[in-house]
Design a protein around this nucleic acid. Structure first.
Length: 724
DNA sequence: CGAAAGGCTCTTTTT
DNA sequence: GAGCCTTTCG
């Protein structure tokens, strides 16, 4: 196979430019993914570079996996030796190996967003600060911003100017101490500490610099300053650094992504070769044109001329509905129409939205009409309570000093350790100047009736009971596979029994089994290693990671998550001022431009058809609001859009009346054949039992408790339920 | 101590 | 409307 075949001249240039710094500016749909994979393949197969000496940084784990899969096809030799992954994953691995040099415990755990917040709350408490006055969230984002600029608490002291910043400084300092005490790193630490490691240990840096002959960074527009710094360090020796990005698709500035990286690149590497990929292979002309009008309204941007040889195609449609329910209905019925016309498959369609909350109305409509869908990250799996609990147990086994995990599960399931016992434990541990977990171990050493018991015999007993359990798990973990350990944790903790007492216990148990399935992938690792690999993987997953490339159902996804994907048909819902652009961004011109880029990203995901949908009125935080059409709609000249902008809910509707579910009685419909207690089966949700069956207008609304999928409300005529 | 109920606040996007 | 925190009662 010729690696350079099927590439246009610009793409070929980008692949062949392997010497020195390269900046590839790639518009949407310009074959960027092809270029970066072919580039690596070219290095290995044509130039003969050892894969061990190549680093390729991707934005998500999923992108890394896809790249690996494609490389396996392009390159016969193993690409296993490549360093391939997100910045965070790569840093996590480096720190696991080299961290000791800067006093990082190799058994360190990674704190996610949630863990950060709970730790920050504890900081506020210990510093006697009112969390109502200093929202943990805003402190967190201040700390994240500081870490992205590589400011330590001491550095931050120089920078703090307002009173709020002084508070942040104090919290930051304490927060960092608690992290260290817990042998924990947060997401930002992974990056910042790696840069520190390299700065303070030139010998280690030298090793890595020498090793990586070629470095490639994707989605460069979404990197922050620490990432840039690290990249610069690593490329310091060979200078074969290739970055790929598109400033118009920069949508992560809130996560400290900094467009200056692209500008700085040309400054730091004046000899950089710049390659522009401007031919779009994805979208129709009309879609591309509409997208270009939206993005060209931005003031702060480098002009770029995208073009395509694709057909003109049908014009993007702007649709107005009355409420968010109708908006969702329109989407479902339009997809149904396109599918029944044989134009598309459901899997070709994606519905995109600005905020996760918007998925709800959509989901309801899809469920009601029995149309299967795939929601990217519902209540994100790894954020579910039961999943986090089990992970906390496992983290504690790996690193008993992880205080966030300890405090999370010491009384889950309830084992008689209330707030008072906890306070006593913490106080006492502090008085003995030992970490909480060490305190527990010491308590377990006391005998019954010992006159020196630090607190009541009952409290000592429950606390040391917990300590004994953990000690056993830790001891076992040295011989057990991760899977054995997983089961031991579930068993010893009594978690299953605990769940069985909860109303939604079965669902939660299912989640635990799913998590066990993830652990299974690490079953063959040696004891310890399996645990640590598993924990690292679950800490760094993202929601899009488990989105299969080929799906057969409609995809529901946020605009941010949609970056890098493409679909024949795209619906962008919530095209309203306040939603897109989001009201939090409207006042700030820079943030407004980012919202516009987000809209641009959404439109350019589409190959054939785009629908821009808005609702006149929508429920928002409980109350109902009236929204103006998104200002971005005005950026598109009307002649580029299709006519018939208003959807009245009549002509294109499915047979079911729009209002079916809000009424009871007034039935002209024969009593349905389903009764509570009947066993039924559904194409998507599997088997279940009918809870109730309510006649509505010309149909019936059935509530079914499914074995796996939980309780759903369905319209009889659409759900295609089969009685068993 | 723990379950349950009531009251509060805040809602963006995520490695 | 939900999640989180506090209060209350058994």
């Amino acid at each position: 196979m010729d690696i350079l075949a099927d590439l246009n001249p610009a793409q070929r240039e980008a692949v062949e430019a392997i010497e020195g710094p390269v900046l590839i500016l790639a518009g949407p749909g310009s074959g960027k993914t092809r270029v970066i994979t072919h580039r690596v393949a070219y290095l290995v197969r044509v130039v003969g570079v050892n894969p061990r000496r190549i680093m390729a940084v991707t934005f998500t784990n999923k992108a890394a996996r896809e790249m690996e899969a494609r490389l396996n096809q392009l390159v016969s030799s193993s690409v296993k030796d490549l360093t391939l992954g997100t910045f965070h994953a790569i840093c996590a691995r480096i720190l696991r190996i080299e961290g000791r040099a800067i006093d990082i415990n190799p058994q360190y755990v990674i704190y996610d967003d949630d863990d950060q917040i709970s730790l920050l709350k504890r900081c506020l408490q210990e510093l006697n600060l009112d969390p109502n006055q200093y929202a943990p969230r805003s402190i967190q984002s201040a700390i994240t911003a500081a870490k992205s600029r590589m400011l330590t608490p001491a550095d931050y002291l120089q920078h703090s100017r307002s009173y709020f910043e002084e508070v942040v400084q104090r919290v930051y300092e304490h927060y960092q101490k608690l992290l260290t005490d817990s042998s924990a790193l947060d997401f930002d630490d992974l990056l910042m500490k790696t840069v520190q490691l390299f700065r303070q240990n030139p010998d280690i840096l030298e090793r890595y610099q020498s090793r990586y002959l070629h470095i490639q960074v994707d989605e460069f527009q979404d990197t922050n300053l620490v990432q840039y710094e690290m990249m610069k360090q690593l490329a310091g020796k060979h200078r074969n650094i290739c970055v790929v990005g598109d400033p118009d698709q920069s949508i992560y500035s809130w996560r400290s992504a900094d467009l200056r990286n692209i500008l700085n690149f040309e400054k730091d590497y004046p000899d950089a070769k710049v390659v522009l990929l401007e031919q779009n292979y994805r979208s129709t002309q009309k879609i591309l044109e509409a997208a270009s009008h939206v993005i060209s309204t931005n003031q702060q941007r480098k002009k770029k001329k995208l073009w395509t040889e694709n057909e003109a195609g049908s014009p993007p449609a702007v649709i107005e509905t009355y409420t968010e329910m109708e908006e969702a209905q329109f989407v479902v019925s339009e997809i149904d129409k396109l599918v029944s016309r044989g134009e598309v498959n459901p899997g070709d369609c994606a519905v995109m939205y600005r905020t996760n909350a918007q998925s709800r109305a959509l989901e309801e409509a899809f469920i009601r009409y029995g149309m299967p869908y795939k929601l990217v990250a519902g209540t994100r799996f790894y954020e579910r309570r039961e999943v986090k609990d089990i992970i906390a147990y496992l983290r504690l086994v790996q690193n008993p000093y992880d205080s966030v995990s300890l405090l999370r599960i010491i009384n889950v399931p309830a084992r008689g350790i209330g707030q008072r016992s906890l306070d006593e434990l913490i106080q006492w541990a502090r008085s003995q100047d030992v970490p909480e977990y060490r305190g527990l171990q010491l308590l377990a050493g006391y005998k019954k009736g010992d006159p020196d018991l630090p607190f009541s015999p009952r409290t000592v007993k429950t606390l040391s009971g917990f300590a004994v359990m953990m000690e056993e798990l830790i001891a076992n973990s040295r011989e057990m596979s991760i899977l054995g350990l997983f089961d031991a944790v579930v068993k010893s903790s009594g978690y299953r029994h605990y769940l069985s007492g909860l109303v939604d216990g079965d669902d939660r148990w299912e989640n635990i089994l799913e998590l066990r399935g993830v652990a299974q992938e690490y079953r063959d690792f040696p004891p310890g290693e399996g645990l640590s690999a598993f924990l690292e993987a679950v800490a760094l997953v993202s929601d899009v990671d488990d989105l299969e490339e080929k799906v057969e159902t409609v995809t529901l996804i946020t605009l941010h998550q949609a970056k890098g994907l493409e679909f024949p048909v795209v619906f962008i819902v919530g095209m309203e001022d306040g939603i897109l652009p989001h009201f939090r961004s409207i006042d700030d011109p820079e943030q407004l431009e980012e919202e516009r880029r987000l809209c641009y990203v959404g439109i350019t995901r589409a190959r054939k058809r785009v629908y821009l949908v808005r609702a006149f009125r929508r429920r928002f935080m409980g109350s109902s609001t009236v929204n103006q059409p998104s200002r971005f709609l005005k950026d598109i000249p009307p002649e580029l859009l299709s006519e018939g902008a208003s959807w009245d809910g009549e002509d294109r509707q499915l047979e079911a009346p729009a209002t079916t579910w809000s009424h009871e009685g007034e039935s002209t419909y024969d009593a349905p054949e389903l009764r509570p207690g009947d066993h039924v089966s559904h194409a998507q949700f599997g088997e279940g039992i009918v809870v109730s069956c309510q006649p509505v207008k010309n149909d019936a609304e059935v509530v079914v408790a499914f074995d796996g999928a939980g309780v759903k409300r369905l319209l009889l005529s659409f759900a295609k339920l089969e009685k068993m």
